[in-house]
Design a protein around this nucleic acid. Structure first.
Lengths: 115, 115
DNA sequence: GACTAATATGAGCATATACGCATATACTTG
DNA sequence: CAAGTATATGCGTATATGCTCATATTAGTC
């Protein structure tokens, strides 16, 4: 499967794409996103679910917000975060699927048909 | 769109996913992947296409290889790399689509219906 | 084997960023 | 306005990683 006209992409576009991936390249942030798959949560709830300090969780939530992956809603003292970009679901599915396939391939190559 | 039972993921799984994203979080590597969308290339060809030093390109190709995103084929003096994990196509499509949508939304909010 | 070309790698430097600690800000209640 | 709770942020440190330069390795040619 190869594409025809892959014209050079602009540095700006590449930067945006790279940044997007970078935001998702942290276990703690993935934990937060994963927790939010179950629905909206406020900060303390997330701290309880994923562990780590409140400060750290808050920072990562900011990062995800600025990347437009999460949305933020204030209600009294609490701040609720939720998944804002639905493409995240498929993104994670794709990556997980790809990893599972790779692991299966390795397991296979090891125990299965050795030549 | 929320999922029902998002059981906590293992640290190992999260690490693998994060690493996957991290590998794609570099403009230079994205450039290489993008160039390879057009088909197999050898190292020098890639250096010519994406710019940068041979050493740097080689290193990034290693990184993509170890992440099982590229495959490697030696032919005489030259080494050919190619996309090995087809899920990369959809991954890039998804991210690009998401970014485009977000940019459109911002443009809209700015010039369009300001309340 | 000597020489050349293509690719990979070791070392050092510069930069980014995650984390912890302390503290600031925002909101509620009395 | 004082006190308390929930969240955000400034700062310092540790670690990771990208880049460059020089050199090693591998393979082909004479």
């Amino acid at each position: 499967m190869t594409r025809k006209n892959p014209r050079p992409m602009s540095d700006a576009a590449l930067g945006l794409i790279a940044r997007r991936f970078a935001v998702l390249a942290e276990p703690m942030r993935l934990r937060l996103v994963h927790a939010l798959f179950a629905g909206e949560r406020h900060v303390n709830a997330l701290v309880g679910e994923v562990g780590g300090t409140q400060a750290n969780v808050s920072r990562h939530l900011q990062t995800l917000m600025h990347a437009h992956i999460l949305s933020r809603r204030k209600e009294g003292l609490q701040v609720f975060y939720a998944i804002a970009d639905p493409s995240i679901y498929r993104l994670c599915e794709l990556v997980c699927g790809s990893i599972e396939k790779e692991l299966a391939r390795q397991t296979d190559a090891f125990s299965g048909g050795g030549r």
